[in-house]
């Protein structure tokens, strides 16, 4: 977790909210089952507004409650999974955003939160998808899962800059998938989201292999124009630094 988040939380909480949260953290530390009653109440006790770095006040307060659980490994994962199962979407996004912190606090938590990430990636809730694609997903999703998650984000309009680990994990196959996606958009006469270009650009040859450049010779003017716009955007894009698998 971004170390600025707990600091920002402490600055933001009112005295009443801070006292409530401190008491809740203490109760959870003594009795893990107490989290079931306090976790849903965080929004109305601490606030729901935005904090920093895409986190809400409630997200950060909930992360603190989860980190206080005196559990580890499978028992920790079981309690977390139940909070997610019975959580509304605000509770679920906080669970997802807390997964990396849980693993940092308890190494034996390991990849036990991965089923929750996968469930979020199956949903159509962009808020949950984005919340799932933090550092924990970047660490644990396999190459295929990570590529699919990036592609789904593109489809859902989630800016790729918000996905953790893209620079390190974007590989040639992902560049191929994004170039094919770009071709598909151009063939439909549509524009391509600009944030796919750095990944494609980092893997020379993927754009050419997609067939997109040949669209400039299409008999349909809308396809030709879309291709010209896409190629101009591609050329104007700086190369992404140090991609995975690059020579």
């Amino acid at each position: 977790m971004d170390p600025r988040i707990p600091i920002a939380l402490d600055e933001r909480l009112t005295a009443d909210a801070a006292a409530w949260l401190a008491d809740a953290v203490a109760r959870v530390g003594e009795d893990p089952a107490a989290v079931r009653g306090v976790f849903p109440a965080v929004g109305r006790r601490c606030g729901r507004g935005p904090l920093i770095a895409g986190w809400t006040v409630a997200d950060a307060a909930r992360a603190r409650l989860l980190a206080a659980l005196p559990l580890s490994g499978a028992a920790l994962a079981e309690e977390i999974a139940a909070l997610h199962r019975y959580g509304d979407s605000a509770e679920q996004r906080a669970v997802l955003r807390s997964l990396a912190l849980l693993e940092d606090t308890d190494a034996s938590f390991a990849d036990r939160g991965l089923p929750l990430v996968r469930a979020a990636l199956r949903s159509n809730d962009t808020d949950l998808i984005e919340s799932a694609l933090g550092p924990y997903a970047a660490r644990h999703l396999d190459a295929e899962g990570y590529r699919q998650a990036v592609l789904k984000s593109v489809f859902c309009g989630i800016p790729l800059a918000r996905i953790a680990g893209l620079t390190e994990r974007a590989d040639r196959e992902l560049a191929r998938m994004l170039a094919d996606f770009a071709h598909e958009r151009v063939a439909a006469g549509r524009d391509v989201p600009a944030d796919v270009w750095p990944v494609v650009r980092a893997h020379p040859g993927t754009l050419e292999a997609s067939g997109l450049p040949a669209e400039t010779g299409s008999p349909s003017p809308d396809r030709r124009e879309a291709a010209v716009r896409a190629l101009a955007a591609f050329s104007a894009t700086a190369t992404a630094p140090a991609p995975a698998g690059a020579a």
Binding site: R36, G37, F39, P40, A41, Y86, D88
Partner: peptide, 10 residues
């Protein structure tokens, strides 16, 4: 047995 989780919600 699951009611307490729901009775805590906003």
């Amino acid at each position: 047995d699951v009611l307490p989780r729901y009775l805590a919600k906003d």
